[in-house]
Each structure stands twice: as structure tokens, then as C-alpha cells.
Design a protein around this nucleic acid. Structure first.
Lengths: 375, 375
DNA sequence: GCCAAATAATTCAACCACTAAACAAATCGT
DNA sequence: ACGATTTGTTTAGTGGTTGAATTATTTGGC
């Protein structure tokens, strides 16, 4: 079975694209193998010939993305295989997060291991964007130095923000009081980060990516993040769905009770009013029902088989679970055909920073050819 | 700019995949050009060289997908260009639709022109699946014969059903009273259709595809179909999103009033109870508000910029518009940043059959290499 | 009327990436 | 010690794209 290339892309395909794709394919295969696979194992897993895999692996080793393991795992007859693994001392991603009451930075290497982790607790609202991001940049610079001392090379950075992001611009971050902030420029004002490409994304989106990495299992789920507001990251087929303008996942403002409580967004009956952090802290009895109603809408619309509750929902999960599941059973049309799985996130408060760092190395994994070209 | 091949596909890529992709690229370029383009124009539009385009075009002409226009459009100095266009007498798609009170068949050629159109009005519920599909098959056979008399060759058929479909199986079609019907097998029971590949999909999904073709413009929209029930087809980046199990788009059972009217699905307050065909016919005052609440949820979750109301909503659109838009302005978080466009469908009752036929030729357009290989 | 300029399309050598098959290397079992 | 077995590399061959040169066909100036 040969691949159907995505038709929508209106760019021509050359031989070099074939190589780029197959490099990524080999890298993914190695990354997703339980044990370090041999070149031959990769070949049979991918459908490429051993000759091709050898050539690709040579490139990946030369580029510092793969390593040949020293003590070859020996099994049965035949020439012993050389095990392949992702390089730990290669490209790494810098994750950054700003939120109402803390800053965080985190470095993750190609294998997904967290190599550095720094946090700074302080109210970020009074400082304003320029100052807060400068402080975050300094935190990131410290993490970078420490990581580079370990032999890592940063491939880029990603910033998690609690707000709406278009492209690289933070359009609105209500809880920070920000509007139209060009975060990458401000971050790169810190000299030690000046050379890094910086991406910006919504906090819930990146947290969802973090959960995807850790959960490992299902590549289709909705991650619901309970912070001051409620946001959601939708992962479809292992890929984050950001929406046309990048403003998807605003589940906190889905209407659950049309004539209900007034919300700070101007509407009435938003989910946030019944299941936001304040409502949860007040032991709000309607929280589970409200969540169930909103989540049932998501499942009816999108046929998502798994829902992951993260952030502030995690400690409340045991209390909320039954109520949510009851509403899902009742309100999801296809509940009888296949149940919806509900679970708590496995990552805690650092899901977003970690997801941000993950997003960077995911970029390297998905397009290793770009990394090899870099020199 | 060379293409980033989709990384998710875990299949290897060979040179033949490159050709397959570039064949599709050339075909799309010709299809989307206002005037019949020359090979040179296609080359500069795609980024391929003229040599490559010539070779690809030769294949497409030999395979009957493209035609060289006879009277070459002359412009300025230089050798006159040979205009390229999709072949009208080439592969065509057979669309089939079964609904509560009618059967329909329709043949669309590669250029998107409807070449045959047959309808049969009758209540399909008493007959049962086997008989209803046999009747539909006979209707399709008549359309096929007429089309083949015009020199068309059917590339396949697609069937639109008002119900939940997994793979090729109709799991539930409540309004028809069907359960677990293997529609392709029953349809191919009609000898004249025995050789056709038959795909099955939800009626709203296919109607959305039909609308995509006709609308031409925006490749991101939600199509909401008001039939006996309310379904929705979500088109993202020109591609239909079907959900993990194919059960997306059940907007009719999104909750709008949690303690509202009882719905036949067992839940309370479903949209269908306030904006279904019956409610519309009864001049239901809550219809616009209910639609607005449900649609706002979709936009908050998915950031869809355009909503198209089709089916039974079309005649009621002028009456509903203001009410829906008011709710959207109020309840969509990003309404202030960019408005949501609401419009009535441009296709009428035949959207689904037509979309079904379109889906078939879309398959040919997206993978012309498969068609060329067929012989 | 003829030649130059211009544009379209084709031809051909070179290149790149993959395949298939033969070959080399390294181990196990007897 | 030797064959069986499996891994990894080498080499020739194939398919597909590129780029430059070539051929084809028109317009416009003199």
C-alpha cells in the first residue's frame, strides 16, 4: 500500500519531498517502537526496503536525531541488530507559559523527557505585557543555558497564553488584561532568546498536545482545561484542530442554560458560570450537569470518543464523574452505539508548558528534513 | 515552496506517489481556472516545470480526463496556447438518495454538470430496506443507461441516507425505521449496478459537499440541513469532517433548553424539538433562538466562519435570519473580532443527491492516478 | 514578403530517491 | 568447523522531475 498524498496542498511534490516524508516516517517508527528497533524492523514496519531505511537512518544519525545503541540487544540466530533510538542530546524544545499568577519554562528533549523546569509565582497582571514577557524571557534564558550545558540544542520555543491567538498575535487575554500583544517580539527582546523561532498558542490547545504525548493511546479526544476560564483543545487523528482563525475550543462560552446567569462575556448561561474555577470551589451542585450538557453537544457534533478533563477539574473529577456521565448517556444520540470515555488528565498544572515544549519537538519529528537542512 | 507531505500517513512514499499527487494537482488547477489554461499557465500556477506539466497532461488526456480545446484562444504574439479543460464525456458519478417520501438518482460529469436527474415520489417506509433499495437501484440503472448513451462512464456511486452510517453500513435510520442495513449489497442486487463501487454517507454530509461545489467560495463552513430531523455537515478546508466513527453532525440533538420538551431520542430540550420541520411548519416562535443557541455553540467550539442553512430552512430563512444572528452576536465569544456569516443554501431539495454524485467525481479528481490505472 | 521577437510545447541529458537482488558481516546451533 | 540465519550494504535499474536546448507557431516591424 503506497501513500495517498494529501491532495489539498496546492504545492508540487518533488523527489526531495519523498525523502522528507520518509525521513519523518522512519523517525516516527523508531519513536513509537517499544524496544529500540533495528533497521530491518523499521523496514518491515514501514514497508520501505532495508536499503532505503539504511540510507535514511544514516542521514538521521548524521543529523543527530537518531543514535545507534552501543550494547546491541541480541536475540536468536543471525547477525545481531543495531538498536536505534532517538538521541537524547539533540534538538530540544523550549516551552513557555504565562498565566495570571505564574510564569513557567520547560525544556523537553527529542525523547520527550523533561530536562529543565522552572517556575516563578507572582501576579502577572500589574506588570503589563512587555514586562511580564521580559521576565518570562529571562526565565526561558536560564532554562536554555542549563539545557545547553547538557548538550542540547534548542530547535525553537512555544508560548502558552490564556487567550485568543491569531497567528503570532495575542488578540485578547481577558484574565491578563491583554490586547493585541506581539508576544514573540517581546520575548525575543531578551538577548539570549533573540535567535529562537517562537510560536504562540492557546493554553488549552498546548495542554491537549501535552496530554496526547503522555496518554500515548487515543489520538482523538477533547481536552477540557479548567483554569480561571474553561478552554478546550481538540485533537483529531493526533493533530490539533485550531479552527480557521485559531479560535476554536471556547467551550466555556457554550450556552447551557439560555436564560441563566450573566457571564462576563455578555451572554447568559455560559458553561463557565456553572463549572468555572469559582463555581467548582463553591462546590456548585450544577457543575456536573452543566459540563455534561456542553460535552454532549461536542460529542453530538464531532463524534469524539474520548474526553479528558484537566487543570482544575482533576481534583474534582471523582465528584463530577457520575453526573457528567449520566448526562452524556442521556443526551448523546449515539451513546447506545458506543459509549463515550471520560477520564481525568494524567498531567497536572504543568500540562500547558510541557505541551508547548512538546509542540516544538513535534515540529522536528514531523519534518526532520528541515532540521537536517538547518546547518 | 515544495509541499509538506502529510506526516500522519504511516505509509511509505515512492516516486509513483509523487506522480499521483502531481496528476491531481494539475487536474485541480485546470478545474479551478476561470478560462481554459495552457500547459504553460498550469506550470506557472503549480510551480512545476513546463516539461513535467506536459508529461502529466499527456497522461490525463490519454486517460480521458482532460481535453485539448479545438479553437485555441489566441492572444498576442507567440505560438498560440492549447486550452485545457475537463472532459465532459469522461468519468461521471452516480448519486442516489433515499428519503422518507422519495427516491432520487442523478449523474454528474467531471465538469460538475448534472447530466441525468430522476425522482420517484412515494412513501418508502412500508416497503422495507430490501425493496426500497431495489427500487432505487432500478432508478439508478435507468440514469446509468441514459448517461452511458451520452458517452459517460460511471466511476462509482454514492448513496445519501437520513441516518447514522459506519463504513458502508446504515446503523440507524430512525425516520425510515431501518437498522443495520448493508445498503451497497442490496443496491448491487440490481444487475445493471452490480459492477459499481458504492459508498454510503449521511444525507447532511453529502448535501454539504454539494453546497461546497456550488458555493465555490469558502472551504470552511457548517451546512445545516432541515429535513424531518436536523443534521449538519462540517466542511473544513474543503474536506468533509466525518468524525471518528462517522457520526458527526448530529446538531439536531444538541441541548438548547435542558429541561425543555421531550425528544424522541429520550433526552429533553433537543434543537430538533424547536426547529425541526414540524416546529417550522407550526411557525414556532422559538425556532430562531434555538438555532442561534446551537449554532453559537458550534462556532465557539470550532471557529467556523460560515453557516449555511439548507433543506427545509431555505424557505423560512428570511423569517429566521435576524433572530439567529442576534443570538450569534450575543453568544459567540469572538463575534466582536470577526462576524459569522449566515446564509441560505443555494441548492434546493436535490442538494444531497447532487452532493452524492459530486462525491464520486471528487474521488476521481482527488486521485486521477487510480482512474488512469483502472483499464 | 520576410525576418525578428515572443510565446508554447517538446526533447534530452542529468539527477535524485527508491527497489530488487546480490553480497558481506556476524552470530547460533550442532 | 560449518551451515543456517538474520542484519546491513552495495550495485544496477527504474521512475519521475529538472533545466537547458530545440522545435513550433504566431504577431509585428521594416
Amino acid at each position: 500500500m503506497t501513500a495517498r498524498l494529501s491532495t489539498r496542498s496546492s504545492a508540487p511534490v518533488r523527489q526531495s519531498s519523498v525523502r522528507a516524508h520518509n525521513l519523518a516516517l522512519v523517525l516516527h517508527t523508531v519513536a513509537n517502537s517499544a524496544d529500540p528497533p533495528s533497521r530491518a524492523a523499521v523496514a518491515s514496519a514501514t514497508g520501505l526496503t532495508r536499503a532505503t531505511v539504511s540510507a535514511l537512518v544514516d542521514d538521521l544519525i548524521a543529523g543527530g536525531l537518531l543514535t545507534e545503541l552501543d550494547p546491541p540487544p541480541r536475540t536468536g540466530a543471525g547477525r545481531p541488530a543495531a538498536g536505534l533510538a532517538l538521541t537524547a542530546a539533540g534538538p530540544a524544545g523550549l516551552g513557555l507559559e504565562i498565566n495570571v499568577d505564574y510564569l513557567a519554562a520547560c525544556v523537553v528533549d527529542l525523547t520527550g523527557t523533561v530536562r529543565q523546569r522552572l517556575t516563578e509565582h507572582a501576579d502577572q497582571r500589574p506588570a503589563g505585557p512587555a514586562e511580564a514577557l521580559a521576565a518570562l524571557g529571562r526565565l526561558g534564558a536560564r532554562a536554555r543555558l542549563a539545557a545547553e550545558a547538557d548538550g542540547l540544542v534548542l530547535a525553537g520555543a512555544a508560548l502558552a497564553v490564556p487567550g485568543l491567538v491569531s497567528g503570532d498575535l495575542v488578540r485578547v487575554a481577558p484574565n491578563l488584561g491583554w490586547q493585541n500583544v506581539d508576544a514573540p517580539v517581546l520575548l525575543r527582546g531578551v538577548p539570549e532568546l533573540a535567535d529562537l523561532p517562537v510560536a504562540v498558542d492557546n493554553e488549552a490547545n498546548l495542554a491537549a498536545l501535552g496530554e496526547l504525548r503522555v496518554a500515548g493511546g487515543n489520538p482523538d479526544f477533547l481536552y477540557v482545561s479548567g483554569e480561571v476560564g474553561i478552554g478546550a483543545g481538540l485533537v483529531i487523528d493526533g493533530e490539533l484542530y485550531r479552527g480557521v482563525r485559531g479560535w476554536s475550543g471556547e467551550i466555556g462560552h457554550v450556552t447551557v442554560y439560555p436564560d441563566g446567569r450573566h457571564c462576563r462575556c455578555g451572554a447568559r448561561g455560559c458553561l463557565e458560570q456553572y463549572a468555572g474555577q469559582e463555581a467548582l470551589a463553591a462546590d456548585e451542585p450544577l457543575a456536573a450537569a452543566a459540563l455534561g450538557i456542553a460535552l454532549a453537544a461536542v460529542v453530538n457534533l464531532l463524534d469524539v470518543p474520548v474526553i479528558v478533563l484537566g487543570g482544575a477539574f482533576v481534583p474534582h473529577f471523582p465528584r463530577l464523574r457520575d453526573g457528567i456521565e449520566a448526562e452524556l448517556r442521556r443526551r448523546v444520540l449515539t451513546a447506545g452505539l458506543a459509549p463515550v470515555t471520560l477520564r481525568a488528565a494524567s498531567l497536572g498544572a504543568d500540562a500547558a508548558v510541557r505541551g508547548a515544549a512538546d509542540a516544538v519537538i513535534r515540529g522536528v519529528r514531523d519534518d526532520p528534513a528541515a532540521w537536517l537542512r538547518r546547518t
